[in-house]
Nucleic acid binder design. Structure first.
Lengths: 210, 210, 210, 210
DNA sequence: CATGAATGAGGGTTCATTCAT
DNA sequence: TATGAATGAACCCTCATTCAT
């Protein structure tokens, strides 16, 4: 019977709706400041039910981050198969990231929050999440594009691709922060955002060209 | 008679010893997980006394961060007056940062923690600290070195110095993270640290050269 | 199935039992000296549970006072419809108050405590309670009886009913204090309580007769 | 030598200045909300010094109340020797109380605060203060005036002077409360204060006339 | 599966009082 | 005498988690 099928579907749906609620609250109040009561209220579910689907507040937070990274992945997944050289693809990738940062600031925060997690007290599931973030997703893609670029002869080969990839990824994160709140600190109010990003990408990429 | 002098000195000393204790606990357990009881015990003082010197846990944390930034400042203060061109100075600066990251990982964390503070709920004193961090210290120095480099004609002038400075500073933060815990993620275990940093700096700086 | 009915009833019951416990402690130690721990222990509930039913210690205290005023109200509610003239009713009312003061000294205290609250720092809910006390209850009744008495021509009409009512109410409060602890101060140990109250009422009421 | 004389005088002066400071803070923030730090700051003395002159916060509060009662006493002390009958004197006394209530609301509060002290936890010195308040001062005077009135044949003798005196005193306290904050509760905004007090006194005294 | 009442271990902070100088 | 640094016992309140229904 498809009964159990339907049950399963409904269960996933409910799980999703909890993540929806958690997102809303996390993004507006911040993770630490959010209580399970907040999420229960927002999801119109009881607090106990939350624990039926997620074993802890942290677990729920991880689910939110996971979804965020998936959104980001979806935005970039078509890129690999496009007919561009590696540098152009990296450029496109950068702009995609910026779009994401502007369109989903909360989701971005949730990713960065995991990013900044202290490794000393890292539970297993968090380690897994880190893996997802760094291995199956943007970081991985950056790494592959760098290697592709080296093969194409348009990215310098005198420096390890790993280092280059890390430098580029770091730069992405930096751009995220920039978009969020540091712009003013560098007194760059008189420059258009688009122009700035253009320059930024040019600057970063010019260092990696062969 | 200098009595009040001595008293003042001792008070500062005690204040320092509290920061010492707080550092120790913050750095080993993380800020959120640290309780005022922990710090009281570590400092061999009563909890009440803590509040004689710092009006809140947060205030204490800010004092720790402030000290960290001062250490970093001290490490870099002689740089400006050295007989090097701007790029070499930036290179030196980068290596200084790396040293700091390796020698004072906890202090670094405390700075990064302030860095990552959510602007939505930023108190005045935190804003001030941010100011110290971004305006009177490393960031400022990076900015100035970039401008110097442009004057010297060795840094590209087609891109706004602000953007260049931000890119470089972001890169520094990225390096910090790298030193702390991301190294393994990029599978770069077979390369010596020094060599890696050398390459990293070369990579970053090559993009900004004119 | 009436299940939720029962749940609701039980919840109210528990709420009541907390008020019971709070009463006991408040009345024996005084409001300020009572801690939430005391009440938790007395109610055989955890401190957290207390806050499930009352949002603050003050809220709990207000609930206690509210119950007290309700007891007092119940004692006097039949009075209005009795076949007596206004003065006799006021006399009865006075004696009812005395009974209350003797039978429920703690409850009386809780009412007087609200009475004496400093208006400078009065929260909304306290204001409401004051309203209940002064407008929907004994004070109101005194006021109405005075007006009735004026209509009946047995209470003087040369003085505003408001003033007369206030004077009578004040006298009630005075009696409360008297019952509680000032008796000895007036060296009236050689007079029976009943006789004293009889005289007291006669004295007070003789001033208001027309 | 008068040296020790002077010392004593200075000590009393300092003690007074502490009471000055305490008054100021107590009256503006309320007794409970006032901290010893507040008083130390206001008196420009150290907290330790406070304890040289008063053995506890409560002791200090008692000193403030004591001074208040003395002010009230001074206002009424000439009354006894005036050429008036007892009822007129009681009338004058009532008006004097009203003046005091309006001119020294803080001092009045401090007296009432002692009045309302719970006898269950009454320390010795508080008992003494109560004695001062009730035996050597206004209450005493009311008592004496009543007895005088009885002698003069203008106050009823069918009711014990003690009861009459207590009733009058209670009425005074009621007036105090009235002046402070209950006026509006009786919707008597359209009547002038003076007229009201006149009526009030007339009302109260008419009950005690023979 | 869903509930929500109950828990209880802290959390940060306050403040009257003491005491060495 | 005067200081003010130090104390430490409480205080109220929070909230992630559990579990009987």
């Amino acid at each position: 019977m498809g009964t159990s099928e339907r049950k399963k579907r409904e269960k996933l749906k409910r799980r999703d709706s909890i993540i929806d609620a958690a997102e809303k609250v996390f993004f507006s109040k911040g993770f630490e400041a959010t209580t399970m009561d907040d999420i229960a209220e927002q999801s119109e579910l009881s607090k106990g039910t939350l624990y039926l689907y997620f074993k802890s507040k942290e677990d729920l937070h991880l689910a939110v981050a996971m979804r965020s990274i998936k959104i980001l992945n979806r935005l970039t997944e078509g890129l690999a198969s496009q007919a561009q050289n590696a540098i152009d693809k990296l450029n496109t990738l950068g702009h995609t990231f910026i779009s994401f940062a502007k369109q989903y600031p909360g989701h971005l925060q949730s990713i960065l929050h995991v990013e900044s997690i202290d490794f000393r007290q890292l539970s297993l599931s968090k380690t897994e999440l880190k893996h997802v973030i760094f291995k199956e997703s943007p970081v991985r893609m950056v790494m592959e594009l760098v290697q592709q670029g080296v093969s194409e002869g348009i990215i310098r080969k005198d420096i390890s691709p790993g280092i280059i990839a890390n430098m580029l990824w770091t730069q992405m994160l930096g751009l995220f922060q920039f978009v969020n709140f540091q712009k003013s600190l560098f007194e760059m109010v008189d420059i258009s955002e688009d122009e700035m990003f253009e320059n930024y990408m040019e600057l970063v990429l010019s260092g990696v060209r062969s």
